[in-house]
Amino acid sequence: MELQIGSTVQTPRFCTVKIEALFNNVQTANECGFTEPTHFRDEDYFIWGKSLGNNRMIFAGIKRYE
């Protein structure tokens, strides 16, 4: 699977989410606040969320391997 900013992805935890950012590694994503797992299963990417406040989140794709 190849993700791009603007892609939509079906996740078990949050249903359909839109990818707002892409990262090459987990550490950088965590430093930018993307810490909520979506339980998305893919060979190439994790999808994690970042809370923006009350019931608002954005989501990022994170490559599993550099």
Rank of each mutant, 00 (worst) to 15 (best):
N55C: 11
T35C: 11
I47S: 02
N54K: 15
V26I: 14
T11F: 00
I58M: 09
K63P: 03
K63W: 01
I19F: 05
W48I: 15
V17F: 12
Y65S: 14
I58H: 12
P37N: 08
W48T: 11
E43Y: 03
R64K: 09
I19H: 09
A60I: 03
A29D: 00
T35E: 11
R64P: 05
T28H: 06
H39C: 09
Y45M: 12
L3E: 02
Y65Q: 15
M1G: 08
R56W: 08
F46L: 15
Q27D: 13
E2K: 09
E2W: 00
R13G: 06
N54L: 12
T35L: 11
F59R: 01
G6A: 01
F14T: 07
Y65H: 15
I19Q: 03
P37T: 11
F23V: 00
W48A: 13
R41S: 14
G33C: 12
W48C: 15
V26Y: 10
T35R: 06
F59Y: 10
K63G: 01
Q4L: 13
G33Q: 06
T8N: 09
N30T: 13
G6S: 00
I58R: 14
H39M: 08
W48Q: 13
F46H: 13
N24Y: 08
V26H: 11
F46E: 11
V17E: 03
F46T: 12
K50W: 01
E31W: 10
F59T: 03
T35I: 15
C32G: 07
Q27F: 09
F59M: 06
L22K: 04
I19E: 03
